[in-house]
């Protein structure tokens, strides 16, 4: 919109010049950012404000910005309400997912950067490819793998071994989450490790540093931005995960996203769902801020 005004201002003659001057009073950065700002306001800020509005609305009503009450939050923090368990499960499983992924992805990322050489791109593609298939389909695939008389159980039965009973447990939920979010940890981590210049490692080695010292003092600190981004990304995604618990976990644990979904659908209690969503956003947002404060984006983008 303002772009059009800007264009007009540029070509005006005589009488409309004062308008052009008025626009010129606004810094160029603000003028150029305005289309994006408008888009963000409509597409991002407005829904967010609506959700926040609903969180403070009377329970079980469908009017927003009409009333103000803390009843929804009181209900959630009431010890009789067990929704805190969903929060606990979601955050705990998300945290475990991140920790496991740190250990699983580090060797792979190291290999991609330092060991695999020209095979690196092929390995990367192998990790990206599953993303082209819907998450639900892939999770059902794992169900078929683990289910009684499924792939694993059937194979073990052929060998006369008892099949494992792993499906529909919190552990398999965690497995599903680690599986699903692996690429989101792997690639930022790979980027982070690739930012460690090889000659720095060589120099450290030349100065007599041991492998652990090089890892602790050179590789890890320099790769940390990438690792932190990966951890943040997977944590945020995993905290909102729901499909793994439903499909592989068989509802053995209820995730917070599931509760939010239920509030908006079956129980038709939008204000409660909105209040849960706001709480989840606060927790995740707080953690993200804490991590982002430690990141140096300039260095990640190679400006320094």
């Amino acid at each position: 919109m303002s772009d059009a005004a800007l264009g007009a201002a540029g070509t005006t003659t005589g009488e409309s010049r004062p308008k052009g001057r008025a626009l010129r009073g606004i810094p160029a950065g603000v003028r150029c950012a305005s289309p994006v700002a408008l888009f963000m306001a409509l597409g991002f800020l407005a829904p967010l404000l609506t959700v926040i509005g609903f969180a403070f609305a009377e329970p079980r009503t469908f009017t927003v910005f009409d009333s103000f009450t803390l009843e929804n939050f009181a209900e959630i923090f009431d010890p009789a309400d067990t929704v805190w368990m969903s929060f606990a499960w979601s955050l705990a499983l998300a945290l475990l997912t991140v920790v496991l992924l740190l250990f699983v992805c580090y060797p792979i990322a190291y290999g991609l950067v330092r060991v695999f050489g020209r095979w690196s791109s092929l390995v990367s593609i192998a990790f990206v490819f599953p993303l082209f298939i819907s998450e639900n389909v892939r999770l059902y695939g794992w169900t078929l793998f683990f289910i009684n008389h499924g792939v694993l159980d059937g194979l073990l039965a052929q060998l006369g071994l008892p099949g494992p009973d792993v499906l529909f447990t919190p552990a398999i939920t965690l497995f599903g989450m680690v599986y699903t979010y692996l690429p989101f940890m792997l690639f930022p981590m790979t980027l982070g490790l690739s930012m460690v210049p090889a000659d720095l490692v060589e120099a450290a080695r030349d100065f007599g540093a041991s492998r652990t010292m090089i890892w602790r003092e050179i590789e890890l600190p320099l790769a940390m931005p990438g690792i932190l981004i990966g951890a943040l990304l997977t944590f945020v995604l995993a905290a909102g995960a729901v499909a793994e618990a439903k499909i592989l976990g068989g509802q053995s644990v209820i995730m917070i996203s599931h509760d939010i979904e239920i509030a908006f659908t079956y129980s038709q209690n939008w204000p409660r769902g909105a209040a849960l969503a706001v709480l989840l956003m606060l927790v995740i947002g707080g953690l993200s801020m804490a991590v982002m404060a430690r990141l140096d984006l300039d260095r990640i983008l190679g400006r320094r």
Binding site: P197, D199, L200, E202, A203, A204, R205, D206, F207, G208, A209, S210, M213, E217, I218, P221, L222, R304
Partner: peptide, 30 residues
Amino acid sequence: RARPTCLVFQSLALFPHMSVGRNIEFPLKA
């Protein structure tokens, strides 16, 4: 690391996340 020799790289290979002092101290720390 076991040779009594030391290479000054073309890039200098200074550790960007360390202060001047910590850079100089690195071989001593090792």
